[in-house]
Amino acid sequence: MKFGIQINEGPYTHEASTTALNFVSAAIEAGHEIFRVFFYHDGVNNGTRYTTPPQDDRNIVNAWSELAEKHDIDLVVCVAAAQRRGIVDEGEQERNGKDGNNIAPGFRISGLGQLIEAGIQSDRLVVFGD
């Protein structure tokens, strides 16, 4: 079965991203496909590689990047939400004249249509948020 995932909160204030990560891992283990993980609202903050949690805490951003690489998962950060919150890839850096970028490996920035498409293409859309 194909799953679409929407994550509405950042990595650390809410449990949402952690729950989603555990759900996605379990779904993959059960042989399901993850069509896309779409990060919206403050969820875009899951996509910055500048995240540096203390050593005794888990690095959720790295966990997403590693999961994406291992299982070829499409991690999409909403462009409008990302612009508001300062999540930038090379393209956005150039377009908006920023002095750097911070997108984490395995993430890409794209439009809200990617969320609707995930709803259309997936058998189930599961939303995690606050």
């Binding site: 919206y40 409008a80 809200l112 249509g113 609707i116 259309i120």
Partner: peptide
């Protein structure tokens, strides 16, 4: 914003 985008689909 999502609702408005959905209209295009």
């Amino acid at each position: 914003e999502v609702i408005l985008i959905s209209a295009a689909f």
